[in-house]
């Protein structure tokens, strides 16, 4: 009798180990050779901490970071950039590829929207720049001060969204987050061999 149970449990473990071998262990071995895409640099300290804010606030639940295969999607035609390759992600842990596009793909948002002031205002109040937006506002990443200090990044908020008095200044986390967003630029063309990594 016990033998049956042991057989069942061993069979169960064997199947799961096989699947883990195919989908985790073998790919891990293959993907160790991945080289960073051309022009890709490790994150600076500020960008890395901005990435932490991105993860913490769950931007991933509305934004993808992957431009999909042009043969089956129109991502590239939409202006989101060339299809993403493993080399684009070598500095990312954990990954933020995402599963939802309530908002646009952000793989190349740094190249598409490089204006810091736009980014800061958009985070403070998305509807101040994009009236139809349903993106959350993140006012708690900003401070309202009576007067801006010498090193402060001031956000120019349209009157409809501005606080009654004082100026809106980017907090350190908003600054880092924007540094991170602007670093998202994977637009450099790939060497011809890298452009088709899927054929492997």
């Amino acid at each position: 009798m016990n033998l049956r149970v042991w057989l069942l449990l061993l069979g169960a473990v064997a199947i799961m180990s096989f699947a883990a071998m195919v989908l985790v262990v073998v790919p891990a071995a293959l993907l160790t050779e991945v080289k960073p895409s051309p022009g890709l640099e490790p994150y600076t300290a500020s960008e890395a901490s901005g990435r932490g804010v991105y993860i913490r606030e769950g931007c991933m639940y509305c934004h993808s970071q992957q431009v999909r295969d042009t043969t089956i999607t129109t991502d590239e035609a939409r202006g989101w950039g060339r299809p993403s390759v493993p080399g684009d992600y070598v500095y990312d842990a954990p990954h933020q590829l995402g599963t939802m596009r309530t908002g646009p793909d952000l793989m190349n948002v740094g190249a598409r929207l490089p204006d810091r002031r736009w980014q800061l205002l958009h985070l403070y109040q998305p509807r101040a720049v994009v009236p139809w937006s349903i993106m959350p506002s993140f006012p708690y990443l900003f401070e309202v001060k009576a007067q801006a200090g010498p090193d402060d990044e001031v956000v120019t908020v349209p009157p409809a969204w501005a606080p009654e008095s004082g100026v809106v200044v980017a907090g350190p986390e908003a600054v880092a987050l924007v540094d991170y967003l602007l670093s998202l630029d994977h637009t450099q063309p790939l060497a011809p061999t890298e452009a088709t990594p899927r054929a492997r």
């Binding site: 699947a19 883990a20 989908l23 985790v24 790919p27 891990a28 993907l31 991945v34 493993p86 992600y89 070598v90 500095y91 990312d92 842990a93 954990p94 990954h95 590829l97």
Partner: peptide, 15 residues
């Protein structure tokens, strides 16, 4: 396990 980076992190995530 916190050992995966890049696309491998994505693959393990969905595994």
């Amino acid at each position: 396990l916190r050992v995966y980076t890049g696309v491998e992190s994505a693959a393990v995530n969905w595994f």
